[in-house]
Simulated scan of single mutants.
Amino acid sequence: MSSDPTTTPVSPLVEQQVDSADTTLHNPRRAVVALGSNLGNRLETLQGAVDALEDTPGVRVKAVSAVYETESVGGPEDQPAYLNAVLVLRTTLPPSSLLERAHAVEDAFGRVREVRWGARTLDVDILAYEGVELDAPDLTLPHPRAHERAFVLAPWLDADPEAEIPGHGFVAELLGKVGEAGVRRREDVALHLPE
């Protein structure tokens, strides 16, 4: 498995910012977003995505999971390993606007959509959005496969230990069912909340 060079301090702990008195957003909702990368400087790309989402008006990154390295699931064979992470956001953007921003961030990091589940510089998926269940052509909430993917559940549990996926159960219990085969926590690298 490949590794990414990093100049950020090594921290085995998940960084969390607890700020229930955030006055920069009015009537925000909680959203959970998954990040993945298996091309280029994966760690740098994931950190860039964290920063880009934080720079979005109406979005605040409230928690960042540990980084996990995972084997590819589905899609073409012989893909490089992914780095994955999960973010918890507070946002005033509606789900459709958050999705547009997610796609814009992917595009900014050179995402190309040629092969379904193919290798990618960056994947930004909305996993859940507080109070919203949706089945639209471009967005399903909660994410339709999150409950069966260890590479989503393990970092989600880090970022939000009490998380629950509507209609499926608690993330901790779901991870216990699917197991963590092919998913490895990277203790040597970390993502950081924007200052």
Rank of each mutant, 00 (worst) to 15 (best):
T6V: 05
P9K: 06
P9M: 07
V10I: 07
V10L: 03
V10Q: 08
P12N: 05
L13I: 00
V14F: 01
V14P: 00
E15M: 06
V18I: 14
D22S: 10
D22F: 12
N27A: 15
P28T: 01
L39T: 09
L46Q: 11
Q47S: 04
A49V: 15
D51R: 15
L53S: 12
D55W: 10
D55G: 15
D55R: 15
V61P: 04
A63K: 10
V64E: 04
Y68D: 02
Y68V: 02
Y68H: 12
S72E: 11
G74Q: 11
D78N: 15
Q79V: 09
Q79C: 12
P80S: 12
A85I: 00
A85V: 01
V86Y: 01
R90Y: 00
T92Y: 01
P95R: 05
L99C: 05
E106L: 08
A108G: 12
V115P: 04
W117V: 03
T121M: 10
G131Q: 07
D138I: 03
D138Q: 14
D138N: 14
L139T: 04
L141Y: 05
P142N: 13
H143F: 10
A146M: 15
R149Y: 12
A154G: 05
P155I: 03
D158H: 13
A159D: 00
A159Q: 02
P161I: 09
P161T: 06
A163E: 04
P166F: 11
F170W: 07
F170H: 14
K177H: 14
G182K: 10
R185C: 09
D188W: 06
D188Q: 10
L191S: 01
L191W: 03
P194Q: 12
E195N: 08
